[in-house]
Design a binder for these strands. Structure first.
Lengths: 337, 337
DNA sequence: CTGAAAGCGCTTACAG
DNA sequence: CTGAAAGCGCTTACAG
């Protein structure tokens, strides 16, 4: 067994070595500006020599902050991570936080016992929380927002309660742009594979598609739904073709679903983009490696994660933060439209 | 801003309400068996009424344990998560730990400053660490194993130092089995797409393929390398075909690479399995949704993650744990061989 | 600008 | 089986 190794040096030891009080060492460690430069240097030398690292627990206990932030993710974490979008958002947050004093705690939201997550969050274990991939049952988090600094990635479904901090892309506009791109190539009979309607992104992208077609005076009846995964896209594409209706363009609400849909189109000999113009959202490996490469709306997921983390840190520090922060998207034209 | 809400009730309050000392409450909270059943009940009632939650920091400070475990992952977290195998291992560990007193802290290993990770791990911030996806530069972690309980997922490359705890599948055997499956279908000229040779899994799977062919007296010159991703598999498959050598079977060291390789075979009109028998490792969505579905070696990733967590908890508790724990794999026969 | 001292909320020998 | 008390390693008014 690994022994606890030699005990960590304490503040006290550093103080003794530097010939000052513990209070002074504490001030230096915490970057107080009111310590004489000379003393700061002495203390820092002692810290370096002793390889002193402050004890988190003692610090937390004394100042009432935990320096940890919860990253709340759904129970089927693997499926969640498997979506490059979420994985990248997390990376953005984690990398940002690595340069702060905060630590990221992975909190799995158990479907069987949702209260458990709430209890943990309310229990003073963390200074704040990052909430990702919530769907219609996200009300408990929304309520918590009153008592704990929280930042949501993507708009929550239950929006009744007042002050919520959300970092999101404008999914309605993104879908409208992607749809318009198809229209611009001259197509007039458009379908869509929409995402889950218990998620904000799912709803908003469907709305963007519909609004764009409405504005052009075109039909909006060719809708099937998927769960944002490749098999989901495959099934929805098949269902759409089963209808036997002619169509020459389709907006698919995620690149993963588009990837699955392409498989079906290919099997049936429907050529993209000649017979069917395709656009989607997400500029991930699915969009890039599809055949043909997909015209898509890129969401800067890493930046979104970093922004979420930054806003949460500000919130924890007592700062003011806008309720809604919109991250810009970008249309990437490739060969599929 | 969210206010800190009403202050959490303390041990002291619970003690007063239950009419006992703080020591007794503490014993009840920690499940000591030496408290009279009647008293236990009283205390638990007071805890429930006050919705008391113990303060982690105070607890840590008093007993010298942090109750947190680091999950060390590589810097490009997104790419890492994107591998369903790792995502699932993490899920297994997280779900297991959710039922314990331990919390999972996500620790990004910065390539630019590897010492930072080591400092954090050594700094008394965590009780133990789970190390995943290490490659040849994993020596610093291996060294840390002397001073902090750690469990590795997959064998580390730098194995010189003594006591290491590893949870792994037998990759040599897995690759040999997958290779044998091809041989059993009568093929005699086999290639392989190997994984990165700076990772244990990459080395071992190549070795299994080679040993199986050696035993059968067949050639082992058709080797290309990939990085375990679909594009990596694509490139390697192309390179293999460029050689112009005839071949009728191939073992590909991961399903993701096989997925990419299949794309190339398909484009060139090489039929699987008629013209080329294919087997691989990983029973993930890539293996299942490929065309044709892949014959593969399933690794129970979720169980591996749970096992890693369980062993680490035992280690932290001072228990004895085997140095090497092998997780059984299973050959899944589908249409590709 | 710096120090003495109280206090953060627990746990845990030690006594009984 | 239970309690009084010391102690975990910090931070932070308060004085000076």
């Amino acid at each position: 067994m690994a022994e606890p190794s030699k005990p960590q040096p304490t503040l006290e030891l550093v103080a003794a070595r530097a010939g000052v009080s513990r209070a002074t060492v504490s001030r230096v460690v915490n970057g107080s500006t009111k310590v004489k430069a000379e003393v700061v240097e002495q203390v820092n030398r002692a810290i370096a020599e002793l390889k002193y690292v402050p004890n988190r627990a003692a610090r937390s206990l004394a100042n009432g902050r935990t320096n940890s932030i919860a990253l709340v993710i759904p129970e089927n974490a693997a499926k969640f991570f498997a979506d490059p979008y979420f994985a990248t958002v997390i990376q953005g947050a984690a990398v940002y936080l690595a340069d702060t004093e905060f630590t990221l705690t992975l909190l799995i939201a158990t479907e069987a016992d949702p209260a458990k997550t709430a209890r943990y969050l309310r229990g003073g274990n963390v200074d704040g929380a990052l909430i990702l991939s919530h769907h219609s049952d996200d009300r408990s988090y929304v309520e918590l927002a009153g008592s704990l600094p929280m930042v949501f990635g993507g708009r929550p479904m239950s929006n009744e309660s007042g002050e919520l901090h959300v970092v999101d892309v404008d999914n309605v506009a993104a879908a409208a742009t992607a749809t318009r791109t198809i229209l611009e190539s001259g197509r007039r009979r458009l379908a869509t594979i929409a995402g889950p309607q218990n998620m904000g992104a799912g709803q908003d992208r469907l709305r963007g598609w519909r609004e764009e077609l409405d504005a052009a005076g075109l039909e909006t009846d060719l809708i099937e739904y998927g769960d944002f995964t490749p098999p989901g896209g495959e099934a929805a594409m098949s269902a759409l073709l089963e209808r036997g209706e002619p169509m020459d363009g389709i907006f698919i609400a995620s690149a993963q679903m588009a990837f699955g849909a392409l498989k079906v189109l290919h099997e049936r000999g429907i050529r993209v983009p000649q017979d069917m113009s395709v656009t989607t959202v997400d500029n991930d490996s699915y969009a890039q490696s599809a055949t043909p490469p997909l015209t898509t709306i890129a969401q800067p997921a890493e930046r979104q994660g970093a922004t979420m983390a930054r806003l949460l840190v500000e919130l924890i520090g007592g700062g003011e933060v806008p309720e809604r922060t919109i991250i810009a998207t970008e249309l990437i034209k490739r060969a599929s439209h």
